[in-house]
Design a protein around this nucleic acid. Structure first.
Length: 460
RNA sequence: GGCCUGAUGGCGGAGUGGUGACGCAGCGGACUGCAAAUCCGUGCACCCGAGUUCGAUUCUCGGUCAGGCCUCCA
């Protein structure tokens, strides 16, 4: 295993060496649950799921501990709850359930932990107390603020010198801040908002502290890998790091910082064939989760990805190709359970999913054309490789015929049999009539040496 | 205003100092009663300008464009 990961702080690819190979820790910033999540929210979910799987492959299933948090204390949540006249838990529980269900349909394994801010309050308050005690935080005007001057390394992660940021800042500085870059650890709640007890009066935590507290509580500091969207580098992760280091006096907060790029929405391109490709939840009504996952992984995770309906159609066709090869090779017994070396090499190179996918196609091609021995190897490697990336877990038949109810299925099979009889009698007009009927049912027939197979034609 | 990325064929997207992945779409052929699928073959690209070099899409500089961050944000 020679995994190399691009570390945002080092601005370079670095060989990955965990602190303890027997306990590899990874934390990824999750969503604020106040609404249906945007597809872009699922890019990190899927990307870090691939990394999770790869790490488990390398270090062992139980050796990787992965925490992905949920932010359930937030202004937007408060607003939504107030709008509906319900407690915030009603809102957060609802959207968290949807989020988790959608993530599962995108093939993401459940993380080892899914901590929530509301369930980490004691740890948050305790950590703030520690920061105050360490002179890294101060109370002012009902707030507790982190003192950015207390940490010399502040700005190292994002590569921004402090004064530079202040010079370019477009926000007014709150009067109670000692330094313009200081940020809130604890603040009083507004009337009617949820609040928690603390030594500084009832209130709620600032945004950044929850992650640091959750990491310490679920994984322990320091951790090996910290991930999230590129937008989180500053200020969120910069602040997390400052807090974590000052609270623990441990110079490393996270050994590797990984950040995924954004999805690009070319508006005019997108809205034509598909009304709404922005919400994963809506997308899942039109596309298999696996196709969406494929689309999200088709480019390198750090690069921006052009997101449009075409991409999704192409993703589905790519999977058709792979599942098609498996379907035709139903009788082949895999001779290995190991992913192909080429495939592994691609993923180990900072998760080069595009190159890994190319290898999947190469394996499919060998599965189509190789001699029996080569086919057996290709099938084993194709399946093991694809599984490592979270693909091809479905039965090929189910992929092509999925979503068809039993009634329709037996009707289709009846027509296939009837057509087969007509074909054997060389009654081509009758055979074509039956095919037309099947076409009307959105079914495509494929005659093969072993009889006809069929598939549902693409929708949309 | 400050900081930072990126710009590859019809589309998406790897990668490389010299033989130019891969997928989808296209085209030609094989197979098929006809199709589909599959197989074989094939066309199409490296933003602009300058520099370094025997040679640059790949390195350097400048420009243009796009995106991100500095404020909630994947």
């Amino acid at each position: 295993m020679t995994l190399a990961l691009y570390d945002t702080m080092a601005r370079a690819k670095r060989p990955f060496v965990p602190r303890d190979p027997g306990r590899v820790t990874m934390y990824v910033c999750g969503p604020t649950v106040y609404n249906y999540a945007h597809v872009g929210n699922f890019r990190p979910v899927v990307v870090f799921d691939v990394l999770f799987r790869l790490l488990r492959h390398a270090y062992g299933r139980d050796a990787v501990v992965y925490a992905a948090n949920v932010t359930d204390v937030d202004d937007k949540i408060n607003a939504k709850a107030a709008e509906e006249g319900v407690p915030i838990e009603v809102v957060t529980d609802r959207y968290l359930a949807v989020y988790n269900a959608d993530a599962a349909r995108l093939g993401a394994l459940p993380p080892s932990f899914q901590p929530r801010a509301t369930q980490t309050m004691a740890a948050i308050v305790e950590m703030i107390e520690r920061l105050v005690h360490n002179n890294a935080a101060y109370a002012a005007d009902g707030h507790v603020l982190f003192n950015t001057q207390a940490y010399a390394g502040y700005g190292e992660l994002s590569g921004r010198p402090l004064d530079e940021m202040i010079a370019g800042a477009r926000v007014d500085v709150a009067p109670y801040k000692q330094h313009p870059a200081d940020f809130v650890l604890w603040k009083p709640s507004k009337p009617g908002e949820p609040e928690w007890d603390s030594p500084w009066g009832p209130g709620r935590p600032g945004w950044h502290i929850e992650c640091t507290a959750m990491i310490e509580q679920t994984l322990g500091l320091p951790i090996d890998i910290h991930g999230g969207g590129i937008d989180l580098v500053f200020p969120h992760h910069e602040n997390e790091r400052a807090q974590g280091v000052c609270a623990t006096h441990e110079p490393t907060y996270a050994a590797y910082w990984l950040h995924n790029g954004f999805l690009n929405f070319g508006e005019e391109k997108m809205s034509k064939s598909l009304g709404n490709v922005a919400l994963a939840h809506d997308l899942l009504k039109s596309y298999p989760g696996e196709a969406i996952r494929w689309a999200l992984l088709v480019g390198h995770y750090r690069a921006p990805l052009e997101w449009n309906a075409d991409l999704l159609d192409q993703a589905r066709r790519s999977l058709d190709r792979l599942y098609g090869a498996l379907r035709r090779a139903a009788g082949v017994t895999p001779s290995t359970h190991q992913p192909s070396p080429q495939f592994l090499m691609a993923l180990e190179d900072d998760l080069n999913t595009a190159a890994a996918m190319a290898e999947l196609f190469a394996l499919a091609s060998r599965l189509e054309t190789g001699d029996p021995q080569e086919k057996a190897l290709a099938k084993g490697e194709l399946l093991a490789s694809a599984w490592l990336m979270g693909f091809l877990a479905a039965d090929p038949e189910a992929w092509f015929q999925g979503g068809v109810d039993e009634d329709l299925k037996s009707r289709i099979n009846g027509l296939i049999v009837a057509r087969d009889e007509a074909r054997r009698a060389k009654d081509w007009p009758q055979a074509d009539r039956i095919r037309a009927e099947l076409t009307a049912l959105n079914v495509e027939v494929m005659d093969g040496p072993a009889g006809a197979t069929w598939r549902l034609k693409e929708q949309v």
